[in-house]
Simulated assay, not measured.
Amino acid sequence: MGILRKGVFDGFEGKTGPLIGRKVNGKCVISGLRRKATKPRTQAQTDQQLKFALVVSLLKWFKSLIAVGFKDPEGKKNSFNRAVKYNFKQIVVGTSPDYSIDYSKLVFSIGSLVGPNSPAISLGKHAVVISWQPDVQTQFNRYTDKASFMMYCPGKNHKVIVIGAAERSALGYVIAIPQDFTGYEMQMYMSFVSADGKVVSDSVYLGLI
């Protein structure tokens, strides 16, 4: 039953017949009841839903990186939604219903900063060693840019994220491998963000360990 709060000219709250009244940001909003779809989904719609769910379930693990890497400079668009939209077109492979992720195309940051110069990874003792080469300093390539790294283990559905861990001038960083990652493949990524946090680089896929 709907409840009139301030008379018939100020909306209502609750359900009344085919209408629903509610308060949103202090305003009265009236909408119709949603009706259940009577038509079965097409195969294309089902495939779209499967792929969308796959992308969302993956990207939710990297929200801290996405919040920086896909931040809208104008503050109008949600960073996670932007990341989903971008990656949806890039990372899903396979045929219905057996879709999977191409981890080499996963992106958690996109921007105008220069990425790492000739990055490389190697396996050390209980750690992954990441290195890159020196480069000429420019407006979009500062020695003070901060590097962020991600180690993702699909087999454990777990990750290690290190944000702003080293300056570009350091030319390297070492990430300890969690003990429970032993025996599993690890996907490695990195990106840069300016010292003031306002500009980012595209994230770079470093490879598989």
Rank of each mutant, 00 (worst) to 15 (best):
G197R: 00
P119T: 02
G111L: 03
S64D: 13
I121V: 14
S31G: 10
C28E: 03
L54Q: 04
D72T: 14
A170T: 05
M1N: 15
A147Q: 04
P73C: 09
S118G: 02
D72G: 12
F52C: 09
S79D: 11
I177H: 02
K71V: 05
A67E: 13
A176S: 03
Y205T: 04
K63R: 14
K105F: 05
G172D: 00
L33W: 01
L171V: 01
P119D: 01
K198M: 15
K51D: 12
V24T: 07
I209Q: 08
V160R: 00
F80M: 13
V8K: 15
I177C: 02
S100C: 04
K23V: 08
D102A: 09
V92G: 05
E13V: 15
K159T: 02
S169Q: 02
V200G: 01
M190E: 01
Y184L: 03
I3Y: 13
M150T: 00
G2M: 14
A120M: 11
S122E: 14
P119F: 03
F62C: 08
T38I: 10
G197K: 09
D202E: 07
M1Y: 12
S104V: 06
K6S: 12
S57D: 15
P73Q: 12
I110W: 00
V129P: 14
Q179D: 14
S96E: 09
Q45R: 10
P134C: 03
Q133F: 02
R34W: 01
V92Y: 09
V92W: 08
G155M: 06
E185Y: 06
K15P: 07
M190F: 04
G69F: 04
E74W: 14
F108M: 14
V174R: 14
N87S: 09
K15F: 05
R41V: 02
V29A: 08
G69D: 06
N157W: 04
S201Q: 00
G21R: 06
P97L: 00
I30V: 15
L65V: 06
T16V: 15
I121D: 06
K125Q: 13
V129R: 15
E13L: 13
N87A: 04
V56G: 11
N81K: 14
G183A: 11
N78W: 07
A53L: 07
S194T: 01
V162D: 01
S191D: 00
P178S: 05
V56N: 09
P119A: 03
V24I: 15
Q179K: 12
I177M: 04
S100I: 04
G183Y: 01
S112Y: 08
K27M: 11
Q137H: 08
K51V: 09
Q45C: 10
F12T: 09
V107W: 00
R22W: 01
F80N: 07
G207C: 08
T138G: 06
N87I: 06
V114D: 09
G32W: 07
E13C: 13
F149A: 01
V29N: 08
K15D: 06
V68R: 10
G69Y: 02
